[in-house]
Design a protein around this nucleic acid. Structure first.
Lengths: 179, 179
DNA sequence: ACCTGAACACCGTTCAAGT
DNA sequence: ACCTGAACACCGTTCAAGT
């Protein structure tokens, strides 16, 4: 059957899940698809563009947040949702950063806008979107890099990024009304 | 003259400044040093380890902050100082993230601790350190990736990350007493 | 329209051998 | 101790040619 952008991105995601970015070369991707490497370049002009398509798929998995809590609770849920999407795929932080830099739609922006307006703080939308997105990507990058290093060298001490993420998110949202 | 770790890191930083991470291959590095690529492996076991040494040098340029303002002002200055160090070298965010993941000392941790204790909020040190560091790295990564994309494709719209950084930092520090 | 085959110009890393 | 020379096993990308 003929190749399609969708099937290429599907397979790219599968390879990422198995071995991260180093395991997703254009050559292994082609092999997995039963095609020559050069065939991929008919569908995508470069690996970078292919990766932004992957990033868009990752961003599409960010869950939407129900308007049922305080502003702080909703913003916390938005941050946690982005974190789940980003850390759900190995090297996801790097890939999503590429996607956002390339102009991908950031679902966090709209979610934060909705929450802020609902709670009468629409003027804080831009700052909170930047802070939340940057924080999740940055800590996600550290976490995934740390994981990659530990795979190569098990001597490296383990770090639990879960509580660390919660603590940073709490500090980040301390200025948002709790009730 | 014989090679040394210092001279290798010096030259690595010079190459990074010229063309970023893609311009800093072990081969170009060796050529610039007038040596064979394999010679580098006597001084560093891998490129990754060499890059963490580069990261430590970058982190060492983070300026220390004078205790002359409010807690919020001092924390803002700490964040700005880290940003300057990180964005001062092309692909610095990625490199510093690698360094921190490898266990490099984070100068922000100590600076935040000093400020927090001076202002009677020592219990907030950990959260603020994580939030501040993650945010600076994350937005820095987006910014530098965006810059790299624009070098390859000038069609991509320019974005001024300066005001965006300020806005996010303001939101991040909104929960810290201003006076 | 969609893909093959072959090549170009690179990578990081290893390791015997030299001095 | 410190480095060379040569090789191994890869990369992303291009492009004429096929169907």
């Amino acid at each position: 059957m003929a190749l399609s952008k969708t099937s290429v991105v599907d397979t790219a995601l599968a390879l990422l899940g198995e071995a991260g970015l180093p395991g997703m070369s254009m050559r292994t991707l082609a092999t997995r698809l039963g095609v020559q490497p050069s065939a991929l370049y008919w569908h995508f002009p470069s690996k970078q563009v292919l990766l932004t398509a992957v990033a868009e798929r990752v961003l599409a998995t960010v869950p939407s947040v129900e308007p049922t809590g305080s502003a702080a609770d909703e913003l916390r849920a938005i941050g946690e949702g982005l974190r789940e999407a980003v850390t759900g795929v190995p090297d996801g932080a790097e890939i999503v950063a590429l996607g956002l830099a390339a102009g991908a739609r950031n679902p966090v922006a709209e979610a934060v806008a909705a929450t802020c307006e609902r709670h009468g703080m629409g003027d804080r939308t831009a700052g909170l979107t930047t802070a939340l997105t940057g924080y999740v990507i940055g800590l996600g990058l550290e976490e995934q890099t740390h994981h990659n290093l530990r795979v190569a060298d098990p001597e490296l001490p383990a770090v639990d990024f879960g509580p660390r993420f919660d603590g940073g998110l709490g500090a980040l949202l301390a200025g948002v009304a709790a009730g």
